[in-house]
């Protein structure tokens, strides 16, 4: 008798265990890992670390930021791409940097940018072309007058700075050579101030701090107004985008929960107050709008693909 009860209990236990995947599992019920594909301390790191505690309140579970640096952000992106689409792993992603493989039509990078499940955009910023504060160069025309290849500073081939400089130079008809290996936008600003290179492309926010101290000076802004002034409105499509992605094939219910929590957190009064005080631009987008944006941008970048060897 006892044996039968025990057997029955075991059978019941097995039945319920098996039944769980079939039933609508409660989501979220455990810690969510928010991947940052760069080292601690940079711009992407700060956005995630400021956002995580706010998302935590919305979702009711712990959100842990985790740095997975390596290969210029490619390692973290690949890690996410291969993760289980269960909603417990999401990552901040940058565009255009992460689109480089799609532009070059390269295989074996480990991920396909268009296949991620996009949850939304946190922020976006326009670019400026800047020279050292002391430089004599005042405009794009001055650069062209130099009559030589213009050196520009970048973090690495495959990074956002590479994509932006190649496409912008192509549109502006400039011949540029990228000097790579600088660490982040701070390394690039030192390179320009020190005179390693003539120019560098900076996101407006990273540039503005150095403009205030007079160390850097913009010779062209690539926002809508600036691009129109240069007569090349297409340039304003070159922006840095900070997006959030989940692995491909995330179930739509989980996607909706995460997407809504992310969108609400970016629009949270506390987060907005922080962003204003720390002078971080915000541009919240939902998942669908982000997907559309990425499709458009990849099309736009790919139009210049002969500039990427």
């Amino acid at each position: 008798m006892l044996v039968r009860i025990a057997l029955g209990a075991i059978a019941l236990a097995i039945a319920t265990t098996l039944a769980i995947p079939g039933a609508v599992a409660k989501y979220p019920e455990k810690t969510i890992t928010f991947i940052i594909p760069y080292k601690p301390g940079g711009g992407f790191d700060t956005y995630v670390r400021a956002l995580a505690p706010i998302m935590e309140k919305r979702l009711g579970v712990t959100v842990v930021p985790k740095n997975i640096p390596g290969a210029g952000g490619r390692k973290g992106a690949t890690h996410l791409y291969k993760s289980k689409p269960d909603g417990y792993r999401i990552s901040i992603m940058n565009l255009p940097g992460k689109a480089i493989a799609a532009i070059q039509g390269k295989k074996g990078v480990g991920y396909d940018i268009r296949k991620f499940t996009w949850l939304g955009q946190i922020a976006s910023d326009s670019y400026v072309i800047a020279v050292a504060g002391k430089s004599k160069i005042k405009s794009i025309a001055d650069l062209k007058k130099l009559g030589r290849v213009i050196k520009t500073a970048g973090t690495g081939k495959g990074a956002t700075s590479y994509v932006v400089s190649q496409i912008a130079a192509n549109i502006l008809g400039l011949k540029v050579k990228l000097v790579t290996g600088y660490k982040g936008s701070s390394g690039m600003s030192i390179a320009v101030i020190r005179g390693d290179t003539d120019i560098a492309f900076f996101a407006y926010r990273s540039y503005s701090k150095f403009a205030k101290s007079g160390d850097l000076r913009a010779i062209a802004a690539l926002d809508e107004k600036g691009a129109a002034m240069l007569g090349k409105p297409g340039l304003s499509k070159l922006r840095i985008h900070r997006l959030v992605a989940a692995p491909p094939g995330l179930p739509s219910g989980i996607k909706k929960t995460l997407e809504d929590a992310l969108f609400a957190s970016i629009n949270d009064a506390g987060f907005k107050k922080w962003a204003k005080k720390a002078r971080r631009p915000l541009a919240a987008l939902k998942g669908k709008a982000s997907e559309k944006l990425i499709d458009e941008l990849v099309m736009f970048y790919t139009g210049h693909k002969d500039k990427f060897k």
Partner: peptide, 27 residues
């Protein structure tokens, strides 16, 4: 001098300042 980190520790430290709403830069 420039509001940029000189070591991995200062990089994270500057991140903490940003989280606290300060905006470290050359000034």
């Amino acid at each position: 001098a420039f509001g940029i980190p000189g070591s991995a520790e200062t990089a994270v430290f500057l991140g903490v300042l940003i989280l606290h709403g300060l905006d470290p830069g050359p000034t």
